[in-house]
Amino acid sequence: MKKKISYCLLGVLLFAGLYVWLRVSFGLFTPYNSWTARQDLKKGKVQYIAIGLPVMPQVRNQVAQQYEFEYNYVGCVVTTELLNGSEYYNQEVKAYLEKKYGEGMWENIKRKCDSLIAANAIDK
């Protein structure tokens, strides 16, 4: 009887440890992870997860529309699971967009955003 209880307890502890490890390391049970990224890309929903306070979000979204994706701003207060999950999500999206538009597309996006932000600053 004691062996049966100890095996059950060991099984529960292993399962709980695996669950916590997958959740924290890969963000597997968050809304944004590599699996949900592949599902969204199959549906044609291309979005890049941006964490933190957005700087000129309208400018970033304007440039993103040229590359047929959108930024999804999550916010400033996030958990480790969400950070890790969104990192894997963004890796899938980056690979998809780089395959579609070429390797240097992220530098082009940054350059266009910087020039539009600078132009807006001059206008004000």
Rank of each mutant, 00 (worst) to 15 (best):
K3S: 12
S6L: 14
C8S: 12
C8F: 12
L10A: 15
G11F: 12
V12N: 05
L13G: 07
F15P: 01
G17F: 06
L18N: 13
Y19S: 07
W21H: 11
V24H: 01
S25V: 02
S25W: 06
G27R: 01
T36K: 06
T36P: 01
Q39H: 09
D40L: 03
K42R: 14
G44F: 11
K45M: 07
V46E: 10
Y48Q: 09
I49T: 04
P54R: 09
V55T: 12
P57I: 11
R60N: 06
R60Y: 11
R60E: 14
N61C: 05
V63P: 06
A64N: 04
Q65K: 15
Q66L: 12
E68A: 13
F69H: 06
Y71H: 13
Y73R: 09
V74Y: 04
G75V: 11
V77C: 10
T79M: 05
T79I: 03
T80G: 02
T80H: 02
N84D: 02
S86P: 02
E92R: 01
V93S: 02
K94Q: 11
Y96L: 04
W106L: 04
E107N: 04
N108R: 15
K110P: 00
N120Y: 14
A121K: 14
I122G: 00
I122E: 14
D123M: 10
D123V: 08
K124F: 10
K124N: 10
